[in-house]
Design a protein around this nucleic acid. Structure first.
Lengths: 149, 149
DNA sequence: TTCATAATCGGAATGATTCCTACTTATAGG
DNA sequence: CCTATAAGTAGGAATCATTCCGATTATGAA
């Protein structure tokens, strides 16, 4: 369920990959990356802003969006949109299913071989899948436990 | 791939179900439903407004949203959100995969037994899936053909 | 240390959606 | 057929996440 790598490793890999690509490593970026690597709840832009401001109180929302955009374009994070809440960002870019709890809002990853459909889709329809987005909305174990069953 | 029923049947079923539930059948509603039943491209609210205005030029955006909301709450349509475009509405409420063409923007339905993951998710994580959203983003047959391969 | 330019900041603009209020109309019952 | 009334509609204002813009700042290469 969890990422294979430790947060620190993810963070370091990302930073050196950005350096290689010629991006400037500002304190703002380092902090945003640190949070993305550690926060497993798939934070939104505002969550990230709040969190970064604990360290860098003057960071602006523009910078958060600018950085998220850059990371997205480089394929380091995934952006997810939902029905009734802001976009969320996921550092796990491998194909997986997101389990979205409709009670507490937490999103967890479910790794699995999710490629089984891909082939039959292409064979039957001619549509060529490039990327996917699979989600289940429901009640997580935690929330189910709390309300009896 | 296509719905099992004819557009006219879907339309009539929906209308009589609304009547049974005590909803008023205004011309605006009839027209919105007519479009949803016939338009297989999963139109957005603005598409629907434009289309309805050909018949009812004075219909407002509020009415479109109000009606879509009502249909959504009653479970007659599904609302879909995407990365870079407005919400889209789907009269196919059964579980299926949406194939989103990133070239032309068309969305088609892929019916299939998409419940295979549901059980293992619950077994392995304790998360109880209620509804799902599976999407592939890629190139549809039409667009692939146009560009050589 | 200097410099070019990418990154940051703050605020304004955007655009889909929601909300609000007054007006209109579909339906049920007389 | 008429009327009452609650539901529906229109139009515009408000909201809010996101994008855009111009001015300022600071990273990293020379």
């Amino acid at each position: 369920m969890k990422s294979e790598q430790k947060p620190q490793d993810i963070e370091q890999t990302l930073i050196s990959r950005l350096r290689d690509k010629g991006y400037k490593l500002t304190p703002q970026r380092r902090e945003i990356i640190r949070i993305l690597a550690r926060d497993e709840s798939h934070p939104g832009a505002m969550d990230i802003l709040r969190e970064v401001r604990k360290i860098l109180p003057r960071i602006s929302m523009s910078t958060v969006y600018y950085t998220l955009d850059m990371l997205k374009k480089e394929g380091f994070i995934k952006e997810l949109e939902f029905y009734d809440t802001e976009n969320r960002y996921d550092i796990n870019v491998s194909d997986h299913i997101n389990l979205v709890c409709t009670t507490c809002g937490k999103i967890t990853d479910f790794m699995s071989d999710v490629h089984s459909f891909s082939e039959s889709v292409e064979k039957e329809t001619g549509f060529r899948p490039a990327r996917m987005r699979f989600e289940y909305y429901g009640i997580c174990r935690n929330c189910a436990g709390r309300n009896g069953r």
